[in-house]
Amino acid sequence: TKVFYNGTYVEFNNPEKAKKYAEKVAKKVGGTFTEKNGQFHVE
């Protein structure tokens, strides 16, 4: 499961961990995250 952010991504074996990371990054940058095709995108 990949989490895309700012033109790069971090890959996780565990979708649950990926979601938590996406939430954390989104919170940090004051943005939101969306799930597309089983991957997370932070905006």
Rank of each mutant, 00 (worst) to 15 (best):
V3W: 00
K36E: 09
A26E: 02
H41Q: 08
E35A: 03
K17D: 15
Y9I: 11
K2N: 04
T1E: 02
V29T: 11
N6V: 04
E16A: 11
F12N: 01
N37G: 10
T34G: 06
Y21K: 03
G30S: 06
Y5I: 10
K28V: 11
A18I: 00
E43Y: 14
K2T: 05
E35F: 08
A26W: 00
K17A: 15
T1K: 06
N6M: 11
F33Y: 12
K19A: 08
P15K: 14
F4R: 03
K24M: 15
K36H: 11
K17C: 15
Y5W: 12
K28Q: 13
K36F: 10
T34H: 13
P15M: 12
H41D: 05
Q39S: 13
E11K: 09
K20W: 10
K28N: 10
V25K: 07
K20D: 14
Y9M: 10
K36D: 08
V29D: 04
E35R: 02
V29Y: 09
T32G: 07
N13C: 15
E23F: 04
K19E: 08
Y21R: 02
P15E: 09
G7D: 08
K28R: 14
G38W: 01
K36N: 08
E23M: 09
K28M: 15
K2A: 06
F12R: 00
V25I: 14
E11Q: 10
G31V: 05
P15D: 06
K20G: 08
V42N: 00
E11V: 12
V42M: 03
F40H: 01
Y5T: 03
V29E: 06
G7T: 05
G38E: 04
K24E: 15
K24I: 13
Q39V: 12
K2I: 07
E11T: 11
N14L: 06
T1G: 03
K28L: 13
N6R: 10
K2C: 15
F33N: 04
K20T: 08
K27I: 10
G7Y: 05
N6Q: 11
V10N: 04
K28A: 15
V3D: 01
G38F: 04
K17V: 13
K19V: 05
Y21M: 06
T8Q: 11
E35N: 04
E35D: 06
G38S: 05
K24W: 14
A18S: 01
F12A: 01
T32W: 13
T32F: 14
V3L: 02
E16W: 05
K24N: 12
Y9T: 08
F40Y: 13
N14I: 06
E35S: 04
N13S: 14
F33R: 03
N37F: 08
T8S: 12
N13P: 14
V3R: 00
G30A: 06
Y21V: 05
K28W: 11
T32E: 07
K20F: 07
A26F: 00
N14F: 05
T1P: 07
H41S: 07
H41R: 06
Y9N: 04
Y21G: 04
P15S: 11
V10D: 04
T34C: 15
F33S: 07
G7P: 00
K24L: 14
K36Y: 11
N13R: 11
Q39N: 15
E43F: 14
E23R: 06
G7L: 03
G30D: 06
E16R: 09
G31L: 07
A18E: 03
G7F: 05
T1N: 09
F40V: 04
K27R: 12
E11G: 05
K28F: 10
V25Y: 06
Y21Q: 04
T34M: 10
Q39T: 08
V25C: 15
G30W: 02
T8I: 11
F40R: 00
E43H: 13
A26Q: 02
N6T: 03
K24Q: 14
K27P: 01
K36Q: 11
N6F: 09
K24S: 13
V25M: 14
N13T: 13
N6G: 11
E11W: 11
G7C: 14
G31D: 02
T34D: 06
E43N: 12
F12P: 01
G38N: 07
Y9R: 00
F33D: 01
G7A: 05
E16K: 10
E16L: 09
K20Y: 09
F4H: 08
K20A: 14
F12G: 01
A26D: 00
E16S: 10
N6W: 06
F4G: 02
K28C: 15
T34K: 10
K36S: 10
E16Y: 06
N14S: 14
F33T: 08
A22Q: 01
G7K: 05
